[in-house]
């Protein structure tokens, strides 16, 4: 059972040139910030390293931050054998959001990433099947969960607002 600081130290030792940070000033949990294009290598290490063994991805969610012009993805990881947890965060530019996919590491991330693409527009590089999952396939009015989303007036002849 390791604490967030120890996990951060192990990661820093193994990925010295990556830009990693630990933020634990906010209530309830510490966040480990990682670069968006290297998250797949970091995740593979987190899953296979014998000290960490993070074999289960609990949650993957997208978050919009229009003030900082960033789109972020939060990963909540857990180890079923060693019983510790960690939260990771990656942030990308809002106009060109690209994050590496982690579906090779945890297959359950597949649909979570499709949902983040559908509702926020985050592109996951090397994803096996990146298309919309909850909204209709021909929805062209944007990404609904962004803070600046506007409702279209009509969709296929049906009035959308009340």
């Amino acid at each position: 059972m390791k604490k967030a600081e120890e996990i951060f130290q192990i990661l820093k030792d193994n990925f010295p040139e990556s830009n990693l940070e630990l933020k634990n000033d906010q209530p309830t949990e510490a966040i480990l910030i990682a670069p968006p294009l290297e998250i797949d290598k970091i995740s593979l290490f987190l899953r296979d390293s014998s000290e960490l063994l993070f074999d289960s991805l609990m949650n993957l969610s997208g978050v919009d931050d229009p003030k900082a012009l960033l789109l972020s993805v939060y990963y909540h990881l857990e180890s079923t054998k060693l019983k510790h947890k960690i939260t990771l965060k990656v942030s990308t530019d809002r106009n060109k959001p690209e994050v590496s996919t982690v579906t090779e590491v945890w297959k359950g991330a597949d649909w979570h990433e499709r949902e983040a693409y559908d509702l926020f527009g985050i592109i996951f590089l090397n994803h096996p099947d990146l298309r919309r999952i909850l909204m209709p396939y021909d929805w062209d009015a944007g990404y609904p969960l962004r803070k600046d989303y506007e409702n279209p007036e009509f969709y296929q002849g049906m009035k959308v607002p009340y």
């Binding site: 906010q26 949990e29 966040i31 609990m58 939060y74 909540h76």
Partner: peptide, 18 residues
């Protein structure tokens, strides 16, 4: 200001709120 992740054992599995 902050964030929380909590989960419970629902009849269908583990339900998490972030």
């Amino acid at each position: 200001v902050g964030h929380v992740y909590a989960r419970v054992e629902n009849p269908r599995g583990d339900l998490g709120y972030f």
